[in-house]
């Protein structure tokens, strides 16, 4: 592992309004090089969509941002701190799992398959992490949870179990669950890919509402309409590298790189 942090740059990272700074991220599974040096910056309040063909490393890259995957080489900064490591002088000390958990409380994540806790009610799902991981008072958390359920249009489902909800409703609960931690960054990994087409809209609407509140969002998606309408920037990945990035409307309607053209032609 060769990681060197230049103190000057470190200061810049914490000082600016840069929410994410991925610096030459490498990741491989055995001999399979999945990420081959990815550089990306995301400003606070920005909405960035990651697009690209299957197996291009979008999920892996996203999961590096909250340390669900460890980075092999390069440094991932989130909110001015190195993900997964504690910086002391010019040394990076690997964080304990407890420390990793503490950093993750500020990063919300929404999965393709919702991953709601099936043995808890909708309200229980949302209240679990704030009460257990942040040790907040139940009454305070419940109030916030109900407000969020209201926002995603599911207030009357608070006492239902996830299995009793449609996919779209489950995903909206998953978003409310992540938001109840009051994160400063939200990661979405294909949040609508497991949904029937007629349920996609209701989840995208919740995400659009969220984007308008100024939440920093990184969204892996195949929904080009969402990317065009809501994203500040679209990043096209292929083969473990960023091939092209730019303002959403520009990249989607007028891609420059042939591989981007090819990919967009196949999904649009």
């Amino acid at each position: 592992m060769t990681m060197q942090a230049e103190p000057a740059e470190a200061q810049a990272a914490s000082g600016s309004n840069r929410m994410i700074w991925a610096d030459a991220i490498h990741k491989s599974y055995g001999r399979n090089d999945v990420l081959k040096g990815i550089d990306l910056e995301v400003a606070a309040g920005e909405v960035v969509c990651l697009i690209g063909p299957s197996g291009s490393g979008k999920s892996t890259f996203l999961r590096c941002m909250n340390h669900l995957e460890t980075v092999d080489d390069g440094i991932m900064w989130v909110a001015g701190r190195v993900v997964g490591y504690e910086m002391k002088g010019d040394r990076l000390h690997e964080q304990s799992y407890a420390q990793v958990c503490r950093s993750r409380t500020k990063i919300g994540m929404v999965f393709q398959h919702f991953n709601l806790f099936p043995h808890m009610t909708v309200l229980g799902n949302i209240m679990e992490a704030p009460t257990v991981a942040l040790r907040q008072k139940k009454s305070v958390v419940r109030e916030r949870a109900m407000r969020l359920l209201e926002q995603v249009g599911l207030a009357e489902k608070a006492q239902h179990y996830p299995r009793q909800l449609s996919g779209g409703q489950q995903q909206r609960v998953a978003i409310a669950r992540a938001l109840c931690m009051e994160p400063s960054l939200m990661l979405f990994d294909e949040p609508t890919s497991a949904l029937d087409p007629e349920l996609v809209g209701e989840v995208l609407k919740v995400m659009k509402d969220l984007a308008r509140t100024g939440m920093t969002m990184v969204v892996v998606t195949h929904e080009m309409n969402f990317a065009r309408d809501m994203a500040d920037r679209v990043v096209f990945m292929d083969g473990g590298v960023i091939v092209e990035e730019g303002p959403a409307a520009e990249l989607i309607t007028n891609p420059r790189h042939p591989r981007t053209k090819e990919f967009l032609a196949s999904v649009l």
Partner: peptide
């Protein structure tokens, strides 16, 4: 399902 552990981890539950 391993997704359960992952979801809990992503929420910062130890």
């Amino acid at each position: 399902d391993s997704g359960q552990v992952e979801a809990a981890g992503a929420l910062g539950i130890n």
